[in-house]
């Protein structure tokens, strides 16, 4: 790194001479980021202490009233419960499906490209398209799911998937898992490239079965990929919005409301910007804590 020997200048001038390149390169990004992310974030914090309706010129300070209301807001707890289901299943399921799929294609058997292309395909599609396609799949009149079930004699399983409060959340979640599997799958495919085959062969020679080789030799070497996939799915899970918004709007009987859809409704249809800001910060806090815990775990795993 070069330094600029300029002994006769003032400290400020020296500082400027040394750092101006760094400042100039960072400034545009930092400026944009500060104005359109950092500043609004603090505005959110502020709004959370007001009962602003999105229109009044005066934002009335109400202290912690919004946060006190959170505790007794049944809909919030319902939504958080749904988010918990979403985050757990929406993280576990794609990994549980994506990892075995990746191992099946590890050796790049015939048709590798076809399979990989197809499994990853939902990832490139807009969530709106996925939501519409799956609303159709679940439609009780012409949807292929019920018709397929009927065709193989499982009439008693078929139902109005998105209209049954007991299954609607899982139905939407299934569409989400379907879309996320491809992402996790390609991560594992890449991760498997780094798995030592010598160890596997050694295990085979030691008489370890398929399952034991997979569990004790392959999976531990993929810990980093599992971590990354988990972190990304977790963060996405707390702010999940798109599929629910388009497929069910939170219904039936609030059975699919998530904290993100609830926040949207409060902010943009019920005129409760202040309360919605508080909701959004709850979501932020939960997802930050989860991320931090996760990063800690990851660091510990790496060291």
């Amino acid at each position: 790194m070069l330094t600029y020997p300029t002994p006769h200048r003032s400290p400020l001038a020296r500082h400027w001479a040394r750092y101006r390149a760094g400042y100039a390169f960072v400034a545009p990004a930092l400026l944009l980021y500060s104005v359109f992310m950092v500043y609004p974030f603090f505005q959110s914090v502020y709004l959370g202490f007001t009962d602003w309706n999105g229109a009044d010129p005066v934002k009335r300070w109400v202290g912690l009233a919004n946060y006190r209301r959170l505790a007794s807001d049944d809909l919030l707890w319902t939504a958080l419960r749904h988010n918990l289901v979403w985050v757990v299943l929406g993280t576990v399921a794609p990994i549980a499906i994506g990892l075995p799929l990746a191992t099946l294609l590890w050796s790049r058997p015939r048709g590798f490209t076809l399979f990989r292309t197809a499994f990853f395909l939902p990832q490139v599609l807009s969530p709106v398209v996925i939501a519409i396609v799956w609303s159709w799949v679940y439609n009780p009149i012409f949807g292929i799911l019920n018709q397929g079930l009927d065709a193989v004699g499982l009439e008693n399983v078929s139902r109005g998937w998105l209209g049954d409060p007991d299954v609607a959340l899982y139905a939407v979640l299934a569409a989400s898992v379907w879309a996320e599997v491809g992402f996790v799958f390609v991560l594992f495919l890449a991760g498997l490239q780094g798995v030592s085959r010598d160890l596997l062969e050694a295990a085979t020679l030691d008489g370890a079965g398929r399952w034991r080789r997979f569990r004790d030799v392959t999976v531990p070497q993929l810990a980093n990929v599992v971590n990354v996939a988990t972190a990304l799915l977790l963060i996405g899970g707390f702010s999940a919005f798109d599929l629910v918004f388009v497929m069910t709007g939170g219904g039936p009987a609030n059975a699919t409301d998530l904290i993100a859809t609830y926040t949207f409704t409060e902010a943009f249809t019920q005129n409760r910007a202040g309360y919605a800001a508080a909701l959004s910060l709850v979501m932020t806090a939960i997802s930050l804590v989860t991320s931090v815990v996760f990063i800690r775990l990851r660091e510990r795993g790496e060291s």
Partner: peptide, 16 residues
């Protein structure tokens, strides 16, 4: 009603 009434959209019902 259809068993799936909660799942049918208004247009689905009209269609029926």
């Amino acid at each position: 009603f259809s068993d799936d009434a909660n799942a049918l959209t208004y247009d689905d019902g009209n269609g029926l």
